[in-house]
């Protein structure tokens, strides 16, 4: 492997590195927000309102599933939501990539579908939850349908854009080497749209988390969403805040892993041209 040339930074001894500086600023902002939250709640809010200290105190109990009898267990909820999120991402991203690719390469598919895909994309998918409970009953299928659709739409539209902007020179090269249509679709159009797919994936992660939580709120499915509703209604606010934090961490983590995977497996990404 040849090493990637990059600019050499000359660290000055009396200064922190740019990376360390950025991390410190980030942590500082976080600490400041926590302090503000703690102070404001102590000063203005009734005692059952969660503050960082009570959340921290609740954390070990919640993580050990030691919650008051009758409240949803933490790990059970995490598991239900995480599985739904990954199922939805898997179905939606695969389906979205395939349909987007087809729309991008086949004019007929473009004319048939794009208008409706765009329309659905512009619509808040969670508005469909009540309708879906009529179709699928109060079941996990509602959540799966919502999260799959939530992942499908942004990936589909982004991959469509990607396959529409495949440089014609790539297709020309492929044809000159006797590529058949499937070689062009999956060997040229899809890899060359990977940057678009990744952008779609980022949007998908956000939409899937929202979809899962809202479906759990409304349909009252086991998961972090229903745990949040239940705990907040039963005045277990610190417990609830742990669930909220987990959702935040989940979103950041999935995108972080996607970033790492991009850097590891697609080193050419954003370096070409």
């Amino acid at each position: 492997m040849t090493s990637v040339p990059h600019a050499v930074a000359y660290p000055r001894p009396w200064r922190l590195g740019a990376g360390t500086q950025r991390t410190l600023i980030r942590i500082g902002t976080g600490v400041l927000l926590l302090v503000l939250w703690e102070v404001l709640v102590r000063w203005l809010a009734p005692p059952f309102v969660a503050r960082p200290v009570t959340v921290a105190r609740a954390l070990p109990h919640v993580l050990a599933n030691h919650v008051p009898a009758g409240t949803p267990t933490f790990w059970g909820s995490v598991e239900a939501t995480v599985i739904a999120v990954f199922e939805g991402l898997a179905i939606g991203v695969t389906g979205g990539a395939l349909v987007g690719l087809t729309m991008g390469r086949l004019r007929t598919a473009d004319r048939l579908l794009r208008f409706y895909v765009s329309a659905f994309f512009a619509m808040p998918i969670i508005a469909l939850v009540p309708v879906m409970t009529l179709w699928f009953g109060y079941s996990n299928t509602v959540r799966l349908a919502i999260v799959s659709l939530g992942a499908f739409l942004p990936v589909c539209l982004n991959v469509y854009d990607g396959t529409r902007s495949v440089p014609s020179s790539f297709v020309e090269v492929a044809q000159s080497y006797h590529a058949r249509w499937w070689n062009v679709w999956f060997g040229i159009a899809l890899p060359s749209s990977l940057p678009y797919l990744l952008a779609g994936f980022r949007l998908a992660v956000g939409r899937v988390l929202v979809g899962a939580v809202v479906a759990e709120y409304i349909v009252n499915l086991k998961g972090l969403g229903s745990m949040i509703v239940f705990d907040s209604r039963t005045f277990h606010q610190p417990q609830m805040m742990v669930a909220v934090l987990v959702l935040a961490v989940l979103g950041v983590a999935i995108n972080g892993v996607a970033d790492l995977a991009t850097r590891r497996f697609l080193p050419w990404y954003r370096r070409s041209e």
């Binding site: 000159s176 006797h178 040229i188 990977l194 697609l266 050419w268 070409s272």
Partner: peptide, 15 residues
């Protein structure tokens, strides 16, 4: 078959 082209735009696949 048996014909190959070298392009002005190189036509290399960045991935």
């Amino acid at each position: 078959r048996g014909v190959a082209v070298v392009f002005q735009h190189f036509g290399l696949f960045p991935w």
